[in-house]
Nucleic acid binder design. Structure first.
Lengths: 154, 154
DNA sequence: TATTGACCTTAAGTTAACTTGAGGTTTTAA
DNA sequence: TTAAAACCTCAAGTTAACTTAAGGTCAATA
């Protein structure tokens, strides 16, 4: 039995091991911890130890980031996971539902944008007043900034 | 004839007017200029003056940003516009084509991600080794970082 | 004409999401 | 047992994309 297997069985993952498995740097794990995204406890020598589900948490964090979700939002969502026990399938499912909606919206937004890139930027209507790109009502969540492309003067 | 109309007819837009029309701050226009995204010339009193097509450029910059394109990339793409003459419908069309492809890729990426959020995060397969989220080959352009969700240990 | 609002420049500050470095301790393995 | 590898903390640096501030000039209007 290698030391690595031992670690896994004992479910006391070291920061180096977690870093390697998850593909993030050790410094990132420290950083996530200060941000409250992951947790660890310390051994006698003050070194961090992790439960295996930290790997899933990190995968989720990265997936969320790839969707354009900020760490702050991820933190909010992750906070709905149970604190005491290891999250179950159901827990993770609930989590994914929250993001599916966001992702759907984001995809829809991109698709509308795509149509506009097609229809508006390429249309040659140099009069900005008639341009559909002006449409102010297209937005993507509350804290999203990219949607108002141009405002008319009031 | 108001002063504003005069400005428009003479096609010498002031920074304040452009800011108002485009919905960006004056400081942002300065910033874009230092980044080489827009251009201006100066009047006698050293104040910036813009050609009307700067408004379209800004609209394009904002649309691109909403697609997740960086200013650096926007600059690259904008540099394909003619320098001497005012860009035509065709010029803008060519531009939009470049981004359509990117946008299509991005949308496809998001959709794959959505499927995974559904199929993987929610699947309860706590063994990360079997999880499709490991798929390393899913990427989104060269300088995109979010795609490799987890790497296996080598 | 005078004064207020619009501009100018340069430098520094801001936020997110990390990374790097310095200086020191703990583990691990030969 | 001892040296290398892995950890630790805390502070500061990094990049993108801007914003804010300070101190001064120019232009529009009552």
């Amino acid at each position: 039995m290698t030391a690595l297997q031992k670690k896994l069985i004992e479910a006391n993952l070291t920061v180096g091991y977690v870093a390697k498995r998850s593909g993030v740097k050790v410094s990132t794990l420290h950083f996530y911890e200060t941000k409250g995204l992951i947790r660890s406890w310390r051994n006698n020598g003050n070194q961090r130890r992790y439960k295996p589900d930290v790997l899933r948490r990190i995968a989720v964090i990265k997936a969320a980031q790839a969707m354009g979700i900020t760490l702050e939002e991820v933190k909010q969502t992750l906070s709905t996971l149970p604190d005491e026990r290891t999250p179950t399938k159901k827990d993770w499912s609930a989590l994914s539902k929250q993001w599916q909606t966001q992702l759907d919206e984001r995809i829809a937004f991109m698709q509308r944008l795509r149509e506009r890139v097609d229809g508006c930027i390429g249309c040659g209507c140099l009069s900005m007043d008639k341009c559909p790109i002006y449409n102010k009502d297209d937005h993507l969540g509350e804290n999203q900034s990219g949607a108002v492309l141009l405002e008319k003067d009031t």
